[in-house]
Amino acid sequence: MLTYAAKRLGLALLVALAVSVISFALLRASSDVAAAVAGEAATAADIEFIRHAYGFDRPLVVQYFDWLGRTLTGDLGQSLYYKKDVADIVLSKLPVTLVLGAVSLVFAILLSIPLGVLAAVYPNTWIDRVSLFFAVIGQALPSFWFALVLIMLFSLTLRWLPVSGSDTWAHFVMPSIALGYYAAPAFMRLTRAGMMEVLSADFVRTARAKGLSPASVVFKHALRNAIIPVVALAAVQLGFMLGGSIVIETVFALDGLGYLAWQSIRHNDFPVTQAIVLLLSVLYIALTLLADLLNGWLDPRIRVR
């Protein structure tokens, strides 16, 4: 297990390094940073002065390692738009996005696992078909459009929930549904497939032969084993949700990382954009690492590969 963990950790660090090179290159090589810092009213001499003062005239490799060193010590530079420390801004918005991701994940799981279990226990019946139907429809709805429909229904017509903002728990209800429903079909299919496989396994037949109640067989014996791949998927899906939060947070003006990312892109605030790309990537890498380690711990066969 230790060798496996060390290997996966090494790979994760390498991937994080590659991501840092790409996000540095993307925003540094393709735009004139000095001109962006100087602002629109700047003269050519001003831009030249800034280019030298900020060190943008040095070779890119030198700039990269300089930037990497500062990033690792937590210095992400100054926001061009807010004129504040990037690290402070980003960290102040992170909790909202993390809460949104976690609640969305819980919503997706609460919706999909019962449906997946029912579909597997009663295959090819109307329950199976209806849940499959919802899975197919769910994957076709554009999340931002679904979000607008929710707003129309629950805020404008029924007046149950606030349209936008992030002050109370009620502000998180619709964003979590809009972000979570998209992941539900994947969980449902995986639960269904896993349950079907496990339900035909020998140990389940033994449990049935012992005369255990059907509920005990399904929930105590089968679900526990079928849930393993779902746990790993949950970690990966949480990563996707953090990435997808940009669309949903913008629709609901939910004051998290995604909304900040959209604003910073619109304001050409590249230090903030870069920091968010990097942070979300590192979070995703950490989550997939966690999923792999969890899988390796629960299922020893994976470690050998």
Binding site: S23, L27, G244, I246, T273, L280
Partner: peptide, 11 residues
């Protein structure tokens, strides 16, 4: 895979 598609595409 570890870079968020929507964010990178927007940027």
């Amino acid at each position: 895979l570890s870079m968020p598609v929507v964010l990178v595409a927007l940027a």
